[in-house]
Design a protein around this nucleic acid. Structure first.
Length: 559
RNA sequence: CGGGGCGUAGCGCAGUUGGCUAGCGCGCAUCGUUCGGGACGAUGAGGUCGGCGGUUCAAGUCCGCCCGCCCCGACCA
């Protein structure tokens, strides 16, 4: 490819405002261009990277016996009503009516369509196990997009689906794809961490995420410094420190603390430790309101809460609702004296406390010396619904300390089980002639996101440093004055040898060409000029030294 | 959805309290000089000032509504 003809030249000025380096570099170097919020065109350079990613993924999956197919981007709404997700995933679904009246949506994922295929074609146990894959666009009507390609509305995703006769088969398929993912990410130059994760709206019995550490990432994982425990913060557990408690139960009393809402300020004012305070939050859960109590120093983990309640809608109750139910301003809610019909969920950390503090459901008042049984009903069980904190002890080995790390989620694997096959009647006939639901798994990689993640991992202050396997070209050839003819000859020789080359054939100064090459980030830079004579200068993007080679020696090196 | 910022040439921006043919830098085109780390001079092309409506003798500038983009938060596979 001649750079002079390339659509998507570099920009000399910064583009837009974005806090993510990868976003800035992708725009500046001419890989992508925005079309709408969270929707991008991939220019030739960006598209070439996507093609590399596509190729690596397909190759690794094919090696393991996975079959490729492609399913539509537009789905009939009826299919989603059948699985029950039309309502469940409503907030991210882009639904539209066709002019002739049918109701459709843009596919955010493909469990429904693949299950539909399975029920039509997987008829006998002899068809199983089998795994199908597609690399296909998705659309999720995200309420907020972020950091260029890291979170977009439209994105390219590799999604594979496995079908098995039983749980044992699912485990094998799951392990097969996990293994493929490790190989894929390694090939692309990523060091990934595999963590336990929440399965969210996809559902199923278990899931794991493939994460790459990055400060630009929006996901947080926790790792133990002593054992192998790793988990997404959303599902992570830990041992919360317990504190000594008083022996004698004291009289409960309400204390006036005007305008004091935050637990730190409150603890100071009441002269009690923060761990004796209680946060009480009211949540709107589908059609009812519930209260959640957690020890003062913690926040509530809404993913855990959501999973425990198995509800559709979970959101903090509105200010009006809180005022109505607590008969107080927001900030004074507490378990004592709430309307009887409001269920209270108590976090594990509130379990063994005596004489604790809690809001009094009266503006400016706080109850001291609250106790279970006497003042509030002791719950049958305490539930882990808190967001854990760095520095606490590991839930697995009990002694290690856990810490929090920022990551980008590149892949996610789910054990679906039979939730879709049962909802959509995707059955097979087993050896004994009995009809059984197919046991499914699903596996996804965010392909467009990989561009951003790779740049976040590999760049310097001059630009991108693409890993060889996903670079748009292997070499960038630069011709400087006096070297045009030799460069053209070399350009054709490289192409004959199937070495991917981008030739900067513009009539530009050396500085411009070098700066652009650094920005674009192709792994190998070749220079031909009157200074190099009949030799060629080679420099790797990620190294400083420069070497001169004869043309024949160079071609050997590049082979 | 809440908070904040913004919308003027392909890109980055300036445009006083409303005032005449709407500017600057980069990029682009032509010519000349330069030619190994973002060169210089000259000339030139390029604009429904996000849209609609209103106020006014006069609107990029004031008012209203709408649309879009960016950032933070909540949310999310």
């Amino acid at each position: 490819m001649r750079y002079s003809k390339l659509i998507g030249k570099t920009k000399r000025q910064k583009m837009q405002t974005s806090n993510a380096v990868s976003h800035q570099l992708l725009l500046k170097a001419g890989f992508i261009t925005p079309v709408a919020a969270g929707i991008y065109s991939f220019l030739p350079l960006g598209f070439r990277v996507l093609e590399k990613v596509d190729h690596i993924i397909k190759e690794e999956l094919e090696k393991r016996g996975v079959q490729h197919l492609i399913m539509p981007f537009v789905h009939p709404a009826a299919l989603w009503k059948e699985s029950g997700r039309f309502g469940k995933m409503k907030r991210i679904l882009a639904v539209f009516k066709a002019q002739h009246g049918g109701e459709y949506l843009l596919a955010p994922t493909h469990e429904e369509t693949v299950t539909d295929i399975a029920r039509k074609f997987v008829i006998s146990y002899k068809d199983l196990p089998c795994i199908v894959n597609q690399n296909q666009w998705k659309y999720r009507d995200e309420i907020r997009v972020n950091a260029g390609l890291l979170r977009t509305r439209e994105f390219l995703m590799q999604d594979a689906y496995s079908f098995d006769i039983d749980e044992k088969g699912l485990e094998e398929s799951f392990a097969l794809i996990s293994d493929a993912y490790k190989a894929i990410f390694l090939k692309m130059g990523f060091e990934t961490v595999v963590v336990k994760a929440d399965s969210g709206a996809i559902g199923g019995s278990g899931s794991e995420e493939f994460m790459v550490l990055s400060s630009a990432g929006e996901d947080k994982i926790i790792v133990c410094d002593s054992c192998q425990y790793k988990a997404n913060l959303e599902t992570a557990e830990s041992i919360s420190p317990s504190y000594p408690q008083e022996k004698d139960i004291k009289l409960m009393r309400a204390v006036l603390g005007k305008g004091i809402i935050g637990v730190e300020e409150l603890a100071k004012f009441l002269n009690i430790p923060i761990y004796q305070t209680t946060k009480t939050l009211l949540y709107q859960v589908d059609n009812q309101v519930i209260a959640v109590c957690v020890r003062g120093e913690y926040q509530i983990n809404e993913t855990k809460l959501h999973n425990y309640l198995k509800c559709t809608i979970l959101a903090l109750a509105s200010e009006d609702t809180v005022k109505k139910l607590t008969k107080a301003k927001v900030g004074y809610a507490g378990p004592v004296g709430l309307p009887k019909n409001i269920k209270i969920i108590w976090d594990l950390t509130t379990k063994d406390r005596i004489n604790f503090e809690a809001g009094a459901n009266k503006t400016d008042y706080h109850n001291l010396n609250v106790n279970f049984d006497r003042d509030v009903t002791k719950p049958e069980e305490f539930i882990d619904v808190r967001l854990i904190k760095s520095g606490e002890n590991c839930i697995k080995c009990k002694k290690g300390k856990i810490k929090e790390l920022n990551t980008i989620e590149l892949g996610h694997v789910f054990k679906l089980g039979t939730i879709y096959s049962e909802a959509m009647a995707a059955n097979f006939i087993d050896k004994k002639g009995k009809s059984k639901p197919i046991v499914m798994g699903c596996y996804g990689i965010g392909m467009t996101r990989i561009l951003s993640a790779a740049i976040e991992q590999h760049h310097d202050d001059k630009g991108i440093m693409w890993p060889k396997e996903i670079a748009p070209f292997l070499v960038q050839l630069i011709s400087l004055s006096g070297g045009e003819k030799n460069a053209e000859k070399l350009y054709h020789k490289l192409m004959e040898k199937n070495i991917e080359v981008l030739w900067d054939d513009r009539d530009e100064s050396a500085g411009v060409k070098f700066a652009d090459a650094d920005l674009i980030g192709i792994p190998i830079r070749l220079v031909v000029s009157n200074k190099t004579g009949d030799k060629v200068e080679l420099k790797y993007r990620n190294k400083k030294d420069i070497q001169l080679y004869s043309e024949s020696r160079l071609l050997e090196i590049l082979k």
